[in-house]
Design a protein around this nucleic acid. Structure first.
Length: 506
DNA sequence: CGCTCAATAT
DNA sequence: GATATTGAGC
């Protein structure tokens, strides 16, 4: 069932640690430590799921947005490629450069992107602004078409043949400058670079183009979005074909499905975190830095529980096309409604975003048996970074390599009542007892995950194993058994929670 | 016309 | 090897 065999080798990991130059998962991100009595949530951001979560959740975002002080790097928040496309003649609005993450700041829509002042205008001003917006929109479209269709469109406008031919260069940023047009069409074996066997250029889905696409999809609603209508709304039928849209839509839905699964996963973590919080509030103890076991790798001094509750994941701004930036959300109410349909509200009001790769790479214990993170993800990220990644390169080069805090050596499943998913456990461990009957949404989720873990949830869980900042466990160290952890907790006076109560209390 | 799937191209 | 495109079949 599970292809859980490979794991990141210590050598490659240490290599990445040294150089920190690779784009894929090789960054070190400074996570707040749980020591010193600081709140482990510091430096993390929560996301209001009332906004379209999928607009800015990108669990695969590769770029750390935290510097050595744990601050979000504001100048890396915006994709320069998009800025270039959208604000080629104007500087980006200030509110696109986010210093802090707040729902208001996060939700930067097209109005903000168009520099429209966020005030309620009177009718005259409104009409003027409408005209301006229309002009801006038209201009934006013109610029986009110029950008995406290329000059070829204008050259071939008079000898228009087919719509594919006329602007087949759609969004092509040819990365092979050696490919000359003169060589085109001579060989039937090998079509010219960037073109397929039919002479049609491959559509390069730039972030901006994708943003348009997503906007159209959201406007229509994910269920009613069909290629023809999307194409109609995008208004780029001279650059794209229905097949292009259909293909992209297919991929988009696939990715969306993936994200939804991860969203659900994040929701369960939010629920679990509430459990931790509730348990800590009920039976918390003072930090015991002088505890006899404090030097043991998996006993870390913390404020309350002996183990830190699951911290909300750091906010991660999406940068590649599948995780378009927030302002890609449609500006009007209809689009917002469609977006709401596209991203149904999660069980909790605040939902953590959990980019799996934001943690520093670290070796994993042999017993974990995690598979490699979906290689498709990394490859895509890598390619996206190469294609659109000035920001990625900048971040990569400028990101300090900070080793993970040594103090964050924790037990993996130390929480009373929490039964780790089977994939977390050693392979030879006998199967767990059947879960209790679902008495709550969380219990249902737990049951669902335990009994029918989807590929996505498995992937997500594996990703969690790989990156959970409080879960580093060096090679050679065996994790403590649940019993030993419980015993330790008992010594510290932490009351245990019956499993049923733990899963039933949301 | 749109979807899924598979083959193919890049 | 991943992704985009394309065609077949429905």
């Amino acid at each position: 069932m599970l292809g859980v065999s490979t794991l990141r080798s210590p050598s490659s990991s240490s290599k990445a640690d040294q150089h920190c130059g690779g784009f894929v998962g090789d960054h070190h991100v400074v996570f707040p430590t749980s020591g010193g009595g600081s709140d482990c949530c510091d430096g993390f951001a929560m996301v209001d799921v009332d906004d379209n979560l999928l607009d800015y959740i990108d669990f695969s975002c590769d770029v750390p947005f935290f510097d050595a002080d744990g601050d979000i790097l504001p100048d890396l928040e915006v994709d320069p490629t998009e800025l270039l496309a959208e604000f080629s003649s104007t500087p980006p609005p200030d509110d696109l450069l986010l210093d802090t993450v707040s729902p208001a700041a996060v939700h930067v829509d097209d109005e903000a992107a168009n520099n429209k002042p966020p005030v309620v205008p009177d009718d005259d001003v409104k009409q003027q602004q409408l005209a301006v917006m229309t002009t801006v929109a038209q201009e934006e479209k013109r610029l986009l078409e110029e950008q995406t269709c290329g000059d070829e469109k204008h050259v071939a406008a008079s000898k228009q043949t087919t719509e594919e031919d006329s602007c087949a260069g759609a969004a092509v940023s040819d990365t092979k400058p050696s490919a000359s047009a003169s060589a085109e069409g001579h060989s039937k074996k090998k079509p010219a670079p960037g073109k397929n066997s039919h002479g049609k250029r491959k559509v390069d889905w730039t972030p901006e183009l994708h943003r348009r696409f997503v906007q159209a999809v959201e406007q229509l609603g994910i269920d009613k979005a069909v290629p023809s209508r999307i194409l109609e709304i995008m208004g780029m039928d001279d650059c794209l074909t229905r097949h292009n849209i259909a293909s992209h839509l297919q991929k988009y839905r696939s990715h969306r499905k993936h994200l939804m699964a991860r969203e659900a996963e994040a929701a369960t973590w939010a629920q679990k975190r509430h459990m931790y919080a509730a348990a800590a509030a009920g039976g918390g103890v003072a930090p015991r830095t002088d505890a006899p076991h404090a030097s043991r790798p998996w006993v870390v001094p913390t404020t309350t529980f002996g183990f830190p509750p699951p911290a909300p994941p750091p906010f991660c701004r999406p940068l590649h096309v599948w995780g378009h930036p927030p302002h890609a959300a449609a500006a009007d109410a209809a689009a917002a409604a469609a977006a709401a349909v596209a991203a149904p509200p999660a069980p909790t009001a605040m939902l953590p975003v959990w980019p799996r790769h934001l943690a520093p790479p670290r070796p994993l214990p042999p017993w974990a048996h995690p598979p490699a993170v979906d290689p498709a993800f990394w490859h895509q990220q890598y390619n996206a970074a190469r294609k659109w990644g000035p920001q990625a390169a900048a971040v990569t080069q400028g990101t300090p390599c900070v080793p993970p805090p040594a103090a964050a050596m924790l037990p993996r499943f130390p929480v009373p009542g929490m039964v780790p998913h089977p994939i977390y456990r050693p392979a030879m461990v006998p199967p767990p007892p059947p879960p209790p009957p679902p008495s709550s949404k969380l219990a249902e989720l737990q049951l669902e995950l335990d009994t029918h873990p989807s590929k996505e949830s498995i992937d997500a869980a594996i990703g969690d194993v790989l990156v959970k900042p409080w879960l580093p466990l060096p090679l050679g160290l065996k994790p403590p058994s649940l019993d030993s952890v419980m015993s330790e907790l008992h010594k510290q006076g932490v009351p245990s929670i019956p499993p049923a109560a733990a899963t039933a209390t949301g």
